[in-house]
């Protein structure tokens, strides 16, 4: 990122090549539209080029994943009133150790880790992340009591974390 701040286009290409599939994949899943997914991908990488300081520190993959989800939510909102939930970008967190543990994460590991979750935990997490809906809507759609949805999401995220740590260490 330091080289991108110095307007190094080759450094930008390295970042683009490494993360464009992630950004595009999230946008495509959430928007269900190739053209819209391409637009979101372009807008995010343009933002990285024009405002490299938007990313300060931590796990770049996690950050860009969050940005892709939030940007896709913006598009969903512009289409309708759907998609209220958003992952805040500005709560200060100290996760340096976590960032290091997950520095080499990839799609296969995440897919394997998610598959290891019980479906009742995995489903609300995926629905929440990619569906851009609130926990209340998740409860309604899955016909599950609100409190149960909350408990399952937290338990699922904790189990997912454990599974990812295991796969990273292995």
């Amino acid at each position: 990122m330091a080289r991108i701040r110095e307007r190094d286009t080759l450094a930008f290409e390295v970042v683009y090549d490494a993360y464009h599939r992630l950004v595009y994949g999230i946008a495509l899943k959430m928007l269900g539209d190739v053209m819209a997914a391409e637009d979101v991908t372009q807008s995010i990488f343009l933002k990285i080029w024009n405002q490299p300081d938007a990313f300060s520190s931590g796990n770049f993959g996690a950050w860009i994943s969050r940005v892709a989800r939030n940007r896709s939510l913006d598009v969903l909102r512009s289409r309708s009133l759907r998609g209220e939930g958003e992952i805040p970008l500005d709560i200060p967190i100290d996760g340096a150790l976590d960032e290091a543990v997950f520095a080499r994460i990839d799609g296969d590991r995440v897919r394997d880790a998610l598959r290891s979750l019980p479906i009742e935990q995995r489903a609300p997490i995926e629905l929440g992340f990619f569906g851009g809906i609130t926990h209340e809507e998740i409860a309604r759609r899955t016909a599950t009591p609100l409190g149960t949805v909350k408990t399952r999401i937290r338990a699922g995220l904790r189990k997912l974390r454990t599974a990812l740590e295991g796969s990273t260490v292995a």
Partner: peptide, 26 residues
């Protein structure tokens, strides 16, 4: 809360990797 949030937010963010577009999809 910050401790719990930090741990779970990173995990949440990584869920996006599930849809990393590979092969025929892209």
């Amino acid at each position: 809360c910050r401790l719990v949030y930090a741990s779970l937010r990173l995990t949440s963010d990584l869920v996006g990797y599930q849809e990393e577009a590979l092969g025929e999809k892209f």
